[in-house]
Design a protein around this nucleic acid. Sequence first.
RNA 1: AGAUCCGUAGCUCAGCCUGGUUAGAGCACUACACUGAUAAUGUAGGGGUCACCAGUUCAAAUCUGGUCGGGUCUACCA
Length: 1159
Amino acid sequence: MPLNSLYFCNFANIFWLYMAIRYKEYTGLNLPATEQEILAKWAEDQSFEKSISLRNGAPSFVFYEGPPSANGMPGIHHVIGRTLKDLVCRYKSMKGYQVKRKAGWDTHGLPVELGVEKMLGITKEDIGKNPSAGQAGISVEEYNAICRREVLKYKDKWDELTTKMGYWVNLSDPYITFENKYIETLWWCLKELYKKKLLYESVSIQPYSPAAGTGLSSHELNQPGTYKMVKDTSAVVMFKAVKDEKSKFLFDAAQSDELFFLAWTTTPWTLPSNLGLTVGANIDYVLVQTFNPYTHLPIHVVLAKALIHTYFKAEDENGDFERYSPPAKTLPWKILREFKGKDLETISYEQLLPFKANSAEAIREITPGADPFRIMLGDFVTTEDGTGIVHTAPAFGADDYKVGKKYNIGILTMVDREGKFIEGLGEFSNRYVKNYKDQEDYADVNVDIAVKLKKENRAFKIEKYEHNYPHCWRTDKPVLYYPLDAWFIKTTALKGRMVELNKTINWKPKSTGEGRFGNWLENMVDWNLSRSRYWGTPLPVWRTEDGSEEKCIGSIHELNEEIKKANEVLGGNVNENYLHNGILDLHKPYVDEVILVSNTGKPMKRIPDLVDVWFDSGAMPYAQWHFPFENVEIFAQNYPADFIAEGVDQTRGWFYTLHALGSLLKESVQEELQKAGIEVNDEKYPGLAFRTCVSNGLVLDKNGNKMSKRVGNVVDPFATIEQYGADATRWYLITNASPWDSLKFDLQGIKEVQRKFFGTLYNTYQFFALYANVDGFAFKEAYIPLDQRPEIDRWILSSLNSLKKRVTEYMDDYEPTHAGRAIEDFVDEHLSNWYVRLCRRRFWKGEYEHDKICAYQTLYECLETVLQLMAPVSPFFCDALFNNLNAVSGRNKAISIHHTLFPEPDAAIIDAALEERMQMAQDISSLILSLRKKVNIKVRQPLRKVLIPVQNKQMKDQIIKVEDLIKNEVNIKEIEYITEGNGFISKKIKPNFIALGKKLGAKMKPVSTAIASFTQEDIATIETEGVYTLHVNGEKIPLQLSEVEIQSEDVPGWMVANKGMLTVALDVTLTPELESEGNAREIVNRIQKIRKDNGYELTDRILVKLSENTALKPSITEYNTYICAEILADKLEWLPDITNGIDIEINDIPLKILVTKKV
RNA sequence: AGAUCCGUAGCUCAGCCUGGUUAGAGCACUACACUGAUAAUGUAGGGGUCACCAGUUCAAAUCUGGUCGGGUCUACCA
C-alpha cells in the first residue's frame, strides 16, 4: 500500500475519532426499536419532568385527565383518546406553556362491585352478612377491602400502556377517588350544596324488583337478556268525562250526557293507582260515536285521530247505527268532532276503580292539596300505539311521575314492595300483580281487573299483547317501576347558568356542544345522586330516627368533633372505636357505625346511601388537589381546565358532571379562594370547569363493528405498538379521520403510514446523513442568508414556513388531523419528491463549497422543522432524529425535541409567487413526462424543445424563473414561449360561471351554449377587442374578456397535453446529436448500475474497459469527459476484445464492458 | 322514541361552511418507466347514478326538507 494512502486512511479514522460523532445512519427503519431507545433515554434524562420544570414561571395551560377505571384492561380505543390528550399537551408545552398533567384513577362504582361479585361468586344479598356469627356471605368490611384491592388490578398494565404509547402524564402522584382526602373534598362539595338547599331527598321512580326486594340500576337493566318478549293482558279502558265548562264543547258535539276518554295500558294493575290522563298538545283527537263491543251500549269516545283505524274499520264509518244489534260483527262509527290535545287540558274525569284505599281523602292525605283525575299535556305522548291518551299512574312510571308532579295530581302506590296490592282495594286486596311467589294456582289479577271493567262498561278492548319488558337479571321476574327514596342535586335550579356557560365552551366538534350537550341541558332533570351499594363515597348525612332532624358533614375534622360530641351527650359506648384517632376510613361500614347527636340531643344515624360515582369524577377539579383543605394556590392556578378530551359517550357523563358542579359550586369556590387572599373575578372563575372540550368518536373494527370482547374483534394495543410502533399507530389514529368521527381501525392503515410517511422521512434523513457524513457538514458555517441561496432552496423554505403557519393554525384550532395531513403532504410531495429529487446532484457532486453548503443547510432546516412539527403527534422517532442531528451540529441545546419551542412561521420567508411558479414547474414537468410516456421516449433521451403557450407576461416571467429546473428534470434543451396572434395554437373558450352567473341569471344557459360554439376567430376577436357582443334570442349581450376563460388546447403537429390553464407541446424529433447524447447517458446509467452491483463505495474510483467493435463508439467518444466525470473514472479504455466483461445493450446496440475498482 | 354523527372509486378519506361545468388523493389492481434515497418514486389505465327522494337555483356532492342504512348516547313509554 502506498504511503500516502495509508496516511489518508489513518487520517480519516483519526479525523472521525476526533469529531467523535457522525450523523447516525440506520440499516433499516425499525420504529419499535427506536422507541425502546428513546423511552430509555427519556427515563434517564427525566425528559417529562424537565419538560414541565423548564416552563416554571411560564403561563400555565390546564389539562384535566378524565380518570379511567383500572379494573379492566386498556384497549386500542384508549390509545386514540390518550394520543389526542397527549398531543395537545405536548403542543402547548412546545408553545411555551407549563402543562401539568396529573393522572387519576376512578375507583368506585358498580362495574367494580359487579366484577368482585362475579369473582367471588356472590350476589348483592350476600353482602353485609356476619360470617363470624355463622351467616353465609361476606361482611361489608371484607367486601370493600376486596373492592379496594381489585379496582387497581390492571393498574400496572395501564401504566405500561401509558409509557409505551408515549403518553406523558404524571403517574407518580395520581389522584385516587377512594382516598380519604379525595372523599373529604367530595363531602365539602356536598355540604356546600346542602347549605344552599341544592341537596334534597325525594322519591324517584326506579326499576325495582319485588322478587329480589331491591332497586335496579340502569346498568343492571342493560345486562343482556333482561328485556324479554312477554304476552300481557292489555286493556283499552274508558274514563268517563265530567261535564262542566271545559268539557262542554265535547258534550255539545256528542249531544249526550256521557262520554269517555280511551286509554291503553299493558299493566292493568296500575289502574287503581291512576290519577290522570296525558295527551299530546299538538296531536289531533276526535270524538267518535259508536258502540261498546262488550256491552253493546251506544257510547261516545275520544281518541287520537291517527289511531282510529286500529279500532275501527274504514268501511264501517258512518255505518247504520239503527240496525246495530249484538252480536254484530261490524261496529258502526262516526266522527263527531276533531280538536287538538291542548283543547282537552285540565278536563276532569271520574275515577275508574274507586276503593277505600284510593279515595280522594286517601290521596289528599298523602299529597295535601292534590287535584287528581284531570287531563294533562305531556311531550312523551305518541300515536305509535294505544289511543294517544296515556293512563297516568305517577308511582309507576318516570314520565307519569314527572307530568303528574307538574299538574299536582298526587301519587298513589297501591302496590307494596313485595309486589302485591295493599289493603282497601276490595276484591283485589293482597293479590300479587305478577306471579312473584311462583304460586302454582296464581290467577292473573290483571285479567280480573279487565273482566270487572268489561262488566262495568269501562273496557273497550281487552287483548293479549306481546311486548318487550325488562326483567330482573337475578330473579328473572318482571321489573316494576316503583317510587323509591333518593337524594337529588337540584341541577335544574341552575339550568339557566349552565346553558349560558355552555355557550362559552369551545366544543370540538361544535355539534356535540350545541346538539347533544345543549339538548341535554335543555331537558335537564335533577341529578339522582344516591345508590344503594357498598363500595363508594358515602353520603355524609345523618338523621334522627323520626327524620325530624339531620346534619350534613363537610369535613373529617367536623365529623371527628361530632363523634366526640355525640359520645359526650349520649354517653355509654357510643362511637368508642372512633374517639381516639378519629375516623380512619370514610367508607362503609365504618361511617355507618358512627352515631351523631342532634341539636335536641337525639341520636342520628347515617343515611345508608352512597353517592353516584359520576359525582366522584365530576368533582375531580377540586378533589384532585384536596381543595379547599390544602393546595388552594395550586388549585387557583389549575382551575378551570383549558382543555379536556374524552369519548363522546362521556357527554352526559363526565362532561356533564364537571359542568354541573362547576356551575353549582361557583360561589363556594370563589369564597374559598377569596379567603385565601386570591384575586377572584368572573372572567377567571366563571363557574366553568373547562373551556375547550374535544369529544372523540368510537374506534370500530375494520368492518365498522363495535369492538367487543364477546365478538373477539378487539385490537390489542400492546401487540400493535410492539409490532408497528407507537409513532405509526398514533400518526395513523390522528391522520386517518378527525378524532370525533368514528374510526375504522385497520392494521393495514398503520402499515401504510409506516411505509409512506415514516419511510419517506427516514429515507430523506438517511440521504442527508449519508452525504453530510461524507462532506463533514456539521452546520458549523454561518447561516447563509436566503438571498444568497438558489431559487429551489428559497422555495422549499418558503413552503416550509407556509407549512409552519398552517400547522400552527390547525393545532390552535384543535384540528390535529389537518395538521398531520399537511405535514405528510409536505414531506412527501415537496421535500422528498421534489426538493431532494431535484437536488440530489448538489449533495454528491462537486466540492464542499457555497452551493453545497446551501443545500445542506436547507435540507437540515427542513428536517429539523418537520421533526418539531410532528413531535406532538408522534413523539419518538422525531426525537431520535432530532438528537442525531443535534449530536453533530449542536444547533439546539435542548436534550429532547419536546423541550424546544414550536417553530414560528416567518412571513418574510413566505413567497407566494415562488410557491406558485414551483407548482407550475411541477405541473409542466408532469405534463412533459406524460408526453414522453405517450411516445415512449425515456427521460434519459434528451429532446430539443417544448412549446408553452402563455396567457400573459406575468405567467411567462414566472415560468422563466423555473425554466432550468424544468429542463433538467425532463431532459429538454429549450423552452419556447408562444404568445398571441401567431395562429399557431388553437384555443378553447368556456364561460367564467361565477362571474357570468351573477350577471346573467336565467340567461346563463343559452349564453353558455353560444360560447361553446365559438370559432377560433371569435376567440381571437374577444382576446384582441376585450369584448364580444353576443346575440341571444334577439338580445344583445356584451361579453367581457374577464367573463370567459380561454386556454390553449392544441398545437397542430405537436404532441400536446393540458392541465388547467397550462398547456405543453413537445418536439419529439430525434436528431443524431440528441441520440448520441442519449446513448452517453445510457452508458452512464449502466455503469452506475454495475458499480452498485459490485458493491463499490460512493467515492471509489473505477477502471473501465470497453470492447471496440460497437456502433456506440462515436457517441461515447464524443461524451468521454462527461461520462468519466459521472462514473468516477479517469478514462475509458477501448480494447479489441474483453474476456470477463458484461454484455449490455443500448438502444439495441450491443456492447461489452468491464468495470473494476481502481486500487 | 329522542338527540347526534356518518353515508363520495373495491378500501381509507379530501371536497360541502362560502353552490359554478372533467368530483380529487392515497392504498389495492394492471402496464410501462426511473433510480448511488430503493421496503422509495414517476407516468398511464380501469374503477363514481357523490345513499335515496323532493325542493330552492340559470347551476346542487355542496343549500333546505324528507326517506333509508350504519354508529353512538339518552330514555324506556301507556
